[in-house]
Design a protein around this nucleic acid. Structure first.
Length: 183
DNA sequence: GGAACGATCTGC
DNA sequence: CAGATCGTTCCC
């Protein structure tokens, strides 16, 4: 089993559409649960689809902080979604974690997902499986905090699938979703 | 103070 | 395909 190295903050300091595909195949770790990131989306401050588009608010303040922190938001009255903040401190950008391939802690994920077959193939399912909630808004994934992003030596794909972002009503045509191609 | 709208998921 | 379900934001 290759050594896991925590992702460096400098890696996340770039522009969200540049950083996002680099997060493919990285590991999301929370306690005993480990998963490989297989789908992401980029959101930028000058992006009508982004929560940061209208400037900082109490909800989005983490997005405008330094890179490497989690921005966790509540939506549709029942779901949470998790982003990794990117770009320099003061800019509102982030990468939405859309899907993860479960690697470890699968039994625990199954319990949290109430026995359903799909454990983490969506942004809200991923948060449920990994028990990511509002208490994790602002946690630093680059330091020793509970949730971390790690590199285990598997590089991002050379040929990621690219397409439009899901579930938005503005900036429909912007192809800022990336996915690991099927094996 | 009120209304509209979600970066979604599930079961019918 | 529609319902669930409520915080955030914007407008009056």
């Amino acid at each position: 089993m290759p050594r896991r190295r925590r992702i460096q903050r400098a890696t996340l300091a770039g522009d969200a559409p540049e950083v996002a595909p680099q997060l493919l195949n990285k590991l999301l770790v929370h306690g005993e649960c480990v998963g490989r990131i297989v789908e992401v989306e980029a959101y930028r401050e000058d992006d009508p689809a982004s929560h940061s588009f209208r400037g900082p608010t109490p909800r989005t303040r983490v997005m405008f902080g330094p890179p490497g922190h989690l921005y966790v938001y509540f939506t549709y009255g029942m779901h949470h979604c998790a982003n990794v903040v990117t770009g320099p401190d003061g800019t509102g950008a982030a990468v939405l974690l859309r899907a993860v391939e479960p690697l470890e802690g699968i039994e625990l994920m199954r319990e949290r997902r109430h026995g359903r077959a799909q454990l983490a193939d969506g942004p809200a399912k991923l948060c449920q499986a990994f028990a990511i909630g509002p208490e994790h808004d602002g946690v630093d994934v680059c330091s020793g905090d509970a949730i971390g992003l790690f590199d285990d030596g598997v590089p991002p794909p050379d040929d990621p699938l690219v397409g439009p972002r899901v579930g938005i009503s503005k900036a429909i045509g912007t192809p800022w979703r990336w996915r690991v191609p099927p094996a």
